[in-house]
Structures are given as structure tokens and as C-alpha cells.
Simulated scan of single mutants.
Amino acid sequence: MNYKPLYLNKIYLITGAAGFIGYFLSKKLLEQGCRVVGVDNINDYYDVDLKNARLEQLKPYEKFTFIQGDISDKSMIAKIFEEYKPNIVVNLAAQAGVRYSIENPDVYIQSNIIGFYNILEACRQNPVDHLVYASSSSVYGANKKVPFEETDFVDNPVSLYASTKKSNELMAHTYSHLYHIPATGLRFFTVYGPMGRPDMAYFGFANKYFNGEPIKIFNNGDFENDLYRDFTYIDDIVEGIERLLSNPSVGDNDVPHKVFNIGNSNPEKLMVFIETLEKCLSHTLGREILFEKVFEPIKPGDVPATYASTDMLQKAVGFKPETSIEEGLQKFTDWYVEYYKHY
């Protein structure tokens, strides 16, 4: 391991800066005195107020510049690169969500394919020290072998979202090969925490409870063969990214491109996660909380298990996520009740 600490004198361009991971990463870099240029289109895929609340917390930092725009706008991206000359680019802007991609395929091609192509082109025209970009655990598709390792075969995605993320990895590899752009892809595993995405299951469960509605669990009520998820707390994700920023990959065959899993490598049954969420919410509110549950069949595009091997990340930068779901969910429920005033 030849780990270099964060470069404080570099300019960081973070796309998706009003998003969940983008906000927390921007905040961490700004707290250390880095210059951050944030880009986000603030679309209405989920609650815009939450995106604006995140941005409000970044605006007081003197070294933060925010630009509202879409990465699929090629001329805007080119202008940002020419004006701000970023040294390190973190592309977190993407249309997220597996189920949403079944009903709204167009936005995935626009943002995840065309948008990422624009970022790669800008890095080619304006050379950068490092491009870090979001991939996803969904690229593993319905792989049966666990834990998932970066060397596994990933040519059988089961959703359009997963296809776009696999495409990003291929595109980045090609640009690294042709133009020697140091690039690192990150396969995130079910990220959760305060100020998270309302479209994620744990957030939706809390919303349903306070709206007096039952929660839907897509496992057919089969507790023996329940869905497994590698839930990864936001602080662990951000630390993993931060450690990689100043450590571009040498890669294989002289192509400076590598892909890493960032997950908890400790998968939990979905039902255990739900029970822990109930306990944490009970603790926050000081009374027993139990969700009303409705069991339904697994949805198209969902995978039965996600389970990350994080050995490569640990070897590269000496980091392994370690936040337990008890600790992480307690922080989420404390924030949730405060933010939505459910005292």
C-alpha cells in the first residue's frame, strides 16, 4: 500500500453535488479547506427541498462554487472545465434507481451515458490528475457467487440502470487506454444514512410509517431465502472515496483505470435491517414502533443478494467500511425525526 493523503491545493469538480453522496463528499473536502466546484441539475426524481437543504449547508463555505446544470449539456461542461480547470473530477451525477429505469429509460441514457461521455470528453480536452466516477453493485446482476469481487464476470445486467453503469466502466477504460486519463470506478453497495435518498427502501419505510401506511417487502414473505443487502453507511462511502482521490490507479496493462467495490462486506437479511430500523425509530421516539408489513413478489430488475468483497480497496488505500447497521440507522432515525419534525 502506497497511500497518499488528500491534496488540499487541488480544485475538485463534483457532479451531483446536491445528491446524497455528492453533498457529504463536498462537505468533507470543504471542511479540510479544499476548493470545490459543485454541479447539479436539481431534478425532481425525489424531493427537491431535500436537495436544496443539502446545498444550503454547503453555501457558507467560501471555497464552494455551485453551478446548476445538467451533465448532458456538453457545452456547459466544456465551459466549466475551461473556466475552473479542475484537477480532480468526481462524477456522481446520474439517474439512479433500478425500478425507475423500467418506466423511464430515456433519462438513464441521457444522464448516465451521454452525460458521462461529456465528462470523459472534457477530461480528454482538459487533462486531469484523476477522474473518479460512480458505478454500482447492480453491475453484478444475478451473480450467484458471493462475495462479489471486482474480477467477477459482469456481462449479465438485469436492469437498464445496471447496463448504463457497466457501460460507464467500459467507456472509462477506453478513454484511459486511448488518452491515458487516470480513472477509478466505484461500485457502491446500498448507501444509507441521514439526508439520504427518499427513494431508498429504508427511507420509504419511515415515510410509510408516519403516513399510516403498510410497508411493502418484496421477498414473497420467504424469511429463509430473504433478500440480502450489503448496507453501507454514508461516512464509510465518503472516507473510501476521499482516500482514493489522491491515489489514481496504475491499473493493469498500463491502462490507468481500476474499479473498486465500496461496501460493508457484511450483508444483512432485509428483515433484520427492517427490525433494526424499527428499534432505532423506537429509541428516537421513546415508544415502541412496529411497521405494518405487506409481502409481495420480488420486482423485475431486483437481485436476491448484494455482498461486496472489499479486499482490493483495503489493499489499495488501507480502508474497510465498519459502521454497523445499528449505529448507522440510529443516526438516520435521529436525523429523520428532527428534519421532518415527527416528535
Rank of each mutant, 00 (worst) to 15 (best):
V36G: 05
E292C: 11
P194D: 00
A134M: 03
A96H: 10
S324M: 09
N225V: 12
W335G: 06
P194S: 02
L50Y: 13
A53G: 04
Y100G: 01
F205D: 04
H283S: 13
Y45V: 02
L160A: 04
F319N: 04
I237C: 13
A316I: 12
F291M: 09
K165C: 05
K341C: 03
I241E: 04
I325Q: 02
T174W: 12
F153G: 00
N112G: 12
L13H: 13
F188H: 01
F188V: 01
V259H: 00
I11K: 13
K28S: 15
F64T: 10
E150C: 03
G115M: 12
A17R: 12
G328Y: 09
T15I: 10
T190F: 09
V98R: 01
I289D: 00
F291A: 08
G141E: 01
A18R: 11
G263T: 00
S138I: 01
E296R: 14
P105G: 10
V191L: 07
P182W: 10
K299H: 14
E327Y: 09
E121T: 06
C34F: 08
H173W: 13
D40Y: 15
N261C: 01
K269W: 01
V98W: 00
N253A: 07
D44I: 00
N9H: 11
V90D: 01
Y46I: 10
I234W: 15
E322Q: 06
I113L: 14
E62M: 05
E296G: 11
I109W: 14
K145L: 08
A93L: 05
L285F: 07
M195Q: 15
L270N: 01
D199W: 13
Y140M: 01
D49C: 02
D199R: 11
H130R: 08
V48A: 04
N264K: 05
M271G: 10
H130V: 05
N247S: 12
T164D: 14
Y23T: 14
D44R: 03
S159R: 13
P304L: 01
E239H: 06
K144A: 12
G33N: 06
K28P: 05
V132I: 11
P304N: 03
L30G: 10
W335E: 02
Y336D: 06
A134T: 07
E338C: 02
P248Y: 11
A93V: 07
L227T: 15
N156S: 13
P60T: 05
D70M: 07
C34H: 08
F116V: 07
K144T: 06
G318E: 08
T184G: 02
E121S: 04
E322C: 09
F273I: 04
D49F: 03
M271H: 12
E82N: 14
G19K: 08
N43M: 03
V36Q: 02
L160D: 08
I11D: 08
